[in-house]
């Protein structure tokens, strides 16, 4: 798999991106009543798309099927809640690095313990560690227990007392998230094209062969796991900033499962696929929610249908339609 997308597909994705960039301009005209709601919804989806990309690095690239990824998302959010002064704005230049550092540390620790296992053990162990994180915030008084905690004032983004952006403004925050979302995408693209990314991609296909070539797979997997966890932490930090609220369900394994569904629905290992997956998944949820109060059953049916009918995800479909420049990876023993 090379780093290039087929040109028509790249253009399509760029067009979709242009829609996102321009939405705040034409949104009020198209949806005068629902504009603010949709703006927030799109912000939330882009945050989840960052989460999905970070999980794709693990699942789709490194072959590490984690079912505890939301723990890092939640931890990122909780760090903001814990580090924010009660009635004052936190300084983003302090809290964001601290939050990411804490998440990176947690991810490295969990990764160190989990990467010793493989296959089904890895799935179960990450699930269990994820739940451990959930209970850490649910059962203890750390930050409001099972009720969660509020972030009263959004972090301030200032240089020398001058506010660069006001995160409280929904539109500004939308563009901040959009910028980070695009930035994270290119960050991962850079990562995947680097020597590190090539090794990790190869590990996902055939770990033993990579070892035979002279690389220590455990080390590369650990670094990939830590990077993925940290970016998940960034997305959780953004989610906490957006809603001004954190609660233990951010860490719950349901949330990990949803992120996994986004990755698979979109097409794992493709990076743009999980982004599409996040959008389709969340928009489907929106649609189902408006149809019935038992929308979760419909989500369940959708998930099962994806597994049975669309094993390579939307990206697989798109790459087929737009002429994948190369055949996809074959199944390895």
């Amino acid at each position: 798999m090379t780093d290039r997308l087929p040109r028509p597909l790249a253009l399509l994705l760029l067009a979709l991106l242009a829609v996102l960039v321009l939405y705040p301009l034409f949104g009020p005209m198209l949806f005068p009543e629902k504009h603010t709601f949709l703006l927030q919804k799109l912000t939330g989806i882009m945050i989840l798309a960052i989460l999905a990309m970070s999980l794709d690095l693990l699942v789709g690239v490194a072959g590490l099927v984690s079912l505890g990824h939301a723990a890092f998302f939640g931890l990122g959010g909780y760090m903001l809640a814990i580090l924010s002064p009660q009635y004052d704005a936190a300084n983003i230049w302090v809290v964001l690095p601290l939050a990411l550092l804490a998440v990176a540390g947690a991810a490295a620790l969990v990764g160190f313990l989990s990467i010793r296992t493989s296959g089904i053990y890895f799935i179960m162990v990450t699930l269990a560690f994820g739940q451990m994180g959930f209970y850490l915030f649910n059962d203890t008084k750390l930050a409001g227990g099972s009720d969660g905690a509020y972030i009263m004032v959004k972090p301030a983004v200032e240089i020398a007392g001058y506010a660069l952006v006001k995160l409280g403004s929904k539109q500004s925050f939308y563009y901040v998230v959009l910028g980070l979302f695009v930035g994270v995408y290119f960050f991962f693209r850079m990562l995947l094209a680097s020597p590190f990314g090539r090794v990790v991609r190869a590990i996902g296909v055939n770990e033993n062969r990579v070892r035979g070539l002279g690389f220590n797979p455990a080390l590369y997997k650990l670094v990939a796991f830590t990077i993925g966890g940290t970016v998940a932490g960034l997305s959780g930090f953004l989610a906490a900033t957006q809603y001004g609220f954190v609660n233990p369900s951010m860490l719950s394994w349901h949330h990990s499962g949803e992120a996994l569904v986004m990755v698979i629905l979109g097409g794992m290992g493709t990076l743009f696929g999980p982004v599409l997956g996040a959008f389709v998944f969340e928009l489907a949820r929106l649609g189902f929610e408006s149809m019935t109060e038992h929308w979760l059953a419909l989500m369940g049916a959708m998930v099962i249908a994806i597994v049975l009918l669309l094993p390579k995800g939307l990206a697989g479909l798109l790459l087929q339609v737009f002429g994948d420049p190369e055949p996809k990876a074959e199944e390895e023993e």
Partner: peptide, 17 residues
């Protein structure tokens, strides 16, 4: 990929391979 094993390490993240 195989030749990368001649690098002192492949923990290089910025420049493309």
């Amino acid at each position: 990929l195989a030749a990368q094993s001649r690098l002192s390490t492949s923990m290089r993240f910025l420049r493309p391979a």
